[in-house]
Design a protein around this nucleic acid. Structure first.
Lengths: 153, 153
DNA sequence: GTATGTGCAAATCATTTGCATTCTC
DNA sequence: GAGAATGCAAATGATTTGCACATAC
């Protein structure tokens, strides 16, 4: 479905290494493993999912390291955090350049992504009139996905 | 600014009492105090803000009771939870019927509300084609509010 | 009087931090 | 070899829960 773009991954890796170098940080074992694991994940993921994946695969990284590297990746602009109402931190790749939004199923918690169509621009006028400087926006739909509807009794 | 609509509050109180009665729950001291306090709050609030407020005013309620009553109020449909990315639970009144969205300042964390203009309908077609049953949506803008821009050096 | 509500202290759960040890440069 | 990164265990902070006592109906 989502074809893994190797060139893109290499670009992201280069961006990450550049960021680390600039900040005087090192290319450690943990950062490499977790970078790869993040690149291997599709679309969204939570910190917890990533930790579980690493532990299952018996990768040599601990829970705190996963969180520390996630923060590195955030700083480097490789991933971004998306606001969802539950207790886990949600992330997604930045390299998937097209602006998009999310619909989440309230049963299975899976996501559907859909492209941004700029209709939110109509709100810009209102917010700018209030002197609010817009840095970004997210649109969240919630509902029930096809599969979960079929599972209903 | 936000005028407190006494009639509305009484309607909400009636709704709450009805809900409690139906569920065989009681109209306790804690539920009354916290209901009043929630009705007194404007727009958004977090669980933590409400707890602080109650403790400052030396109301006779404990932290766990605030959380328990918030859940009662959610169940009764008096308040709804809104998804923001931080660690606190965010709530808002349901009685403020007009659909609206939020812009949050990344510096001071205050909110601006703005009316829903139904532009999101353009997305419905896409999601429905995927068999996704939409139950609701939220739009979050983030940026810097007028006051915080003025405070910048 | 009995079932429900409450406060308290302790449990959770995701995330973060202190620190001694190990690794990268 | 010096400065960073890591794992471990413990700290944190919001929220929840168990339980003995208090209260609403």
């Amino acid at each position: 479905m989502l074809k893994v773009d190797l060139q893109m991954i290499e670009n992201e890796r280069a961006k990450f290494l550049r960021h680390l170098a600039k900040a005087g940080r090192r290319v450690s074992h943990g950062r490499e493993i977790i970078f790869d694991e993040v690149m291997r994940s599709h679309g969204h993921f939570t910190a917890e999912e990533l930790v579980k994946e690493c532990l299952q695969k018996k990768l040599k990284v601990s829970r705190p390291t996963v969180f520390r590297v996630l923060n590195d990746l955030l700083e480097a602009g490789i991933i971004r955090e998306t606001a969802f109402g539950d207790k886990h931190r949600h992330f997604e790749h930045v390299y998937d350049e097209k602006p998009h939004h999310h619909a989440q199923c309230i049963r299975c918690h899976n996501f559907i992504e859909f492209p941004d169509r700029k209709e939110d621009k109509i709100y810009h006028q209102y917010l700018e009139k209030q002197g609010f400087k817009i840095l970004g926006h997210e649109m969240h739909f919630y509902g029930i996905c096809k599969d979960c509807q079929l599972k209903e009794v």
